[in-house]
Simulated scan of single mutants.
Amino acid sequence: MQREGNTPDGFVRIPSESLAEVELRHLISEKDVTIAVPGGGATITGITEWVGQWRHQTVSIGWDWAVVDGIVVLVSPSEIRTNIQLVSRTGSAEPPALAQIHLFHWIESLPWRSGAVEELLAGERSLNKQR
């Protein structure tokens, strides 16, 4: 059984049902033209990273995004980057597929589109108009 908290492997263990209690703040969002989008069709791609605290331990989560048909989407839930390891009520690590689902739903509850990414895109649209 694994315990909650930070361990020598660098992961911060958080019970899945407590994930929503972690308060995050936006750290960075930027364009990244090297991101491949399955199926293509993306006009702009980028990354975003958010940071926060869980019981006095720093957590970080980042993901790739793209603008596809005018909509900002998370590119690949299987490629979410984080130092969080979700654990079950028994303290064992959640299976990776289940952890991805929890993390994806958590990300979708954040204001990452309207806050960070759309501000970045709006700034770019204004620069293009000035040119």
Score class of each variant (00 low, 15 high):
residue 6 N to L: 15
residue 101 I to Y: 04
residue 25 R to L: 12
residue 53 Q to L: 12
residue 31 K to V: 15
residue 14 I to Y: 00
residue 129 K to Y: 11
residue 119 E to D: 06
residue 105 H to Y: 06
residue 111 P to H: 10
residue 117 V to Y: 03
residue 94 E to G: 08
residue 8 P to Y: 07
residue 72 V to W: 08
residue 53 Q to C: 07
residue 81 R to G: 11
residue 102 H to T: 01
residue 70 G to H: 08
residue 51 V to Q: 10
residue 57 Q to H: 15
residue 100 Q to D: 09
residue 42 A to L: 04
residue 123 G to P: 04
residue 65 W to V: 10
residue 106 W to Y: 14
residue 45 T to H: 04
residue 44 I to K: 05
residue 108 E to D: 13
residue 38 P to K: 03
residue 122 A to K: 01
residue 129 K to L: 14
residue 17 E to R: 12
residue 48 T to G: 15
residue 87 V to T: 09
residue 18 S to I: 00
residue 76 S to A: 14
residue 82 T to I: 02
residue 79 E to R: 12
residue 55 R to W: 04
residue 102 H to D: 06
residue 53 Q to I: 01
residue 1 M to S: 14
residue 37 V to W: 05
residue 22 V to M: 05
residue 45 T to I: 09
residue 10 G to N: 10
residue 111 P to M: 10
residue 66 A to Q: 08
residue 89 R to N: 12
residue 105 H to N: 11
residue 86 L to M: 06
residue 1 M to F: 12
residue 89 R to I: 07
residue 60 S to Y: 10
residue 34 T to W: 12
residue 55 R to H: 11
residue 78 S to L: 13
residue 11 F to E: 06
residue 130 Q to R: 11
residue 87 V to G: 03
residue 122 A to C: 09
residue 22 V to C: 06
residue 9 D to I: 04
residue 96 P to G: 07
residue 109 S to P: 01
residue 55 R to I: 02
residue 122 A to N: 08
residue 65 W to A: 13
residue 61 I to W: 01
residue 87 V to S: 02
residue 5 G to L: 07
residue 127 L to M: 13
residue 3 R to T: 12
residue 100 Q to H: 02
residue 96 P to M: 06
residue 62 G to V: 08
residue 117 V to T: 07
residue 2 Q to N: 15
residue 91 G to A: 07
residue 60 S to K: 08
residue 26 H to V: 13
residue 2 Q to H: 11
residue 32 D to T: 07
residue 26 H to W: 15
residue 80 I to R: 00
residue 126 S to W: 04
residue 93 A to C: 08
residue 12 V to H: 02
residue 103 L to H: 04
residue 104 F to V: 03
residue 53 Q to S: 14
residue 8 P to V: 08
residue 111 P to K: 05
residue 37 V to L: 03
residue 32 D to C: 13
residue 9 D to A: 12
residue 124 E to G: 07
residue 101 I to E: 12
residue 117 V to Q: 06
residue 35 I to N: 02
residue 106 W to N: 03
residue 6 N to D: 09
residue 109 S to I: 01
residue 58 T to N: 15
residue 76 S to N: 13
residue 115 G to A: 05
residue 3 R to Y: 11
residue 130 Q to S: 14
residue 110 L to C: 04
residue 93 A to S: 13
residue 4 E to W: 00
residue 107 I to P: 08
residue 53 Q to F: 02
residue 74 L to C: 07
residue 81 R to K: 13
residue 67 V to H: 03
residue 31 K to C: 06
residue 69 D to A: 15
residue 64 D to S: 15
residue 65 W to R: 08
residue 93 A to V: 05
residue 105 H to T: 10
residue 66 A to V: 12
residue 39 G to K: 00
residue 33 V to Y: 12
residue 21 E to P: 03
residue 53 Q to Y: 05
residue 63 W to T: 11
residue 70 G to W: 10
residue 84 I to M: 10
residue 12 V to E: 06
